[in-house]
């Protein structure tokens, strides 16, 4: 690999955190008019707004750092699938309400720890974004934990369904705690978060809620990697990109 400049690494880093927000926010937004009640739908729309909002700030910061006159929309709409470095967990399809809650729970537990650590970043802009996002993801964690407990300790059907969701999404959680080259480089300067150090707390947090939900903690530790380090996504990602970028690709260079 050619040597990565610190500036380039920072652009990649900000964009990569933004990618997680945009892609999971996209998935949440797909619940519009599909949720089990209006209240639940509005809660998910709210999460989507927060997460896409986080992506906007991070992309804007990435664009400013890059200094090529690009905007947040260049990052969302004009990069190719391989340029997105979101964790695979954020892009897998919504599935049923249980799958969606489990995904949001895994991600929010991670986000809570991640943004807490990011507030201590030596990069003041990232620290500020971390502080603002932390408030939002704390709510997402509460919302998804409450639902996880309700589903786990609800009916037999809901228990079985949500246990299956946990078991099938588990393989995507390991990727959250891997480091990219950009992260390693920025870690030296105290800019990036050492995500490998977050795993123990994440496991404790998850185990605690699963216990309350009368659910079983998965034992299979195999992790599916690819999105974060290499931009190698699941088969689903191409459709997200197609959907999301359709207007910008069809009508290039327009103001909307």
């Amino acid at each position: 690999m050619t040597e990565l400049s610190k500036q380039k690494a920072l652009v990649q880093y900000a964009a990569q955190i933004g990618d997680n927000g945009l892609i999971i926010g996209h998935r949440m937004s797909e619940w519009c008019f599909r949720a089990p009640s209006i209240e639940m739908e509005m809660a998910l729309m709210n999460c989507a707004l927060d997460l896409i909002g986080q992506a906007r700030e991070l992309y804007t910061y990435a664009a400013t750092t890059q200094g090529e006159g690009k905007t947040e929309d260049d990052f969302a709409y004009l990069r190719d699938e391989q340029d997105f470095r979101n964790a695979l967990l954020t892009e897998v399809p919504n599935g049923d309400w249980g799958d969606t809650i489990v995904r949001l729970f895994f991600m929010s537990a991670y986000n809570k720890l991640f943004f807490t650590a990011l507030t201590s970043s030596k990069d003041s802009e990232l620290a500020a974004i971390g502080a603002k996002s932390l408030k939002e993801v704390t709510y997402h964690l509460r919302f998804s934990s409450e639902w996880l407990i309700r589903l786990g300790d609800g009916t037999e059907e809901s228990h079985t369904r949500v246990q299956n969701s946990i078991d099938s999404l588990w393989a995507y959680t390991g990727e959250l705690f891997t480091m990219t080259d950009a992260e390693n480089l920025l870690l030296e300067d105290g800019i990036a978060v050492d995500v490998t150090a977050l795993k123990a707390d994440w496991v404790t947090l998850v185990a605690q809620i699963l216990e309350q939900a009368t659910l079983t903690f998965p034992t299979n530790d195999w992790a599916q990697l690819g999105g974060k380090a290499k931009g190698q996504h699941t088969e689903h990602m191409g459709y997200i990109i197609t959907d999301m970028q359709y207007m910008q690709r069809r009508y290039p260079g327009c103001e909307w």
Binding site: H26, S29, E30, L49, R56, D73, Y77, D243, W256
Partner: peptide
Amino acid sequence: GMQPEGNWITRAPSLRRKVILLAKIQDEGG
């Protein structure tokens, strides 16, 4: 009324328009 508008959230042509649309649909649910 959330349905016709919900049809365009994922395809909104800019992030600014996307969040405006999401917030509007959320208002309507409210």
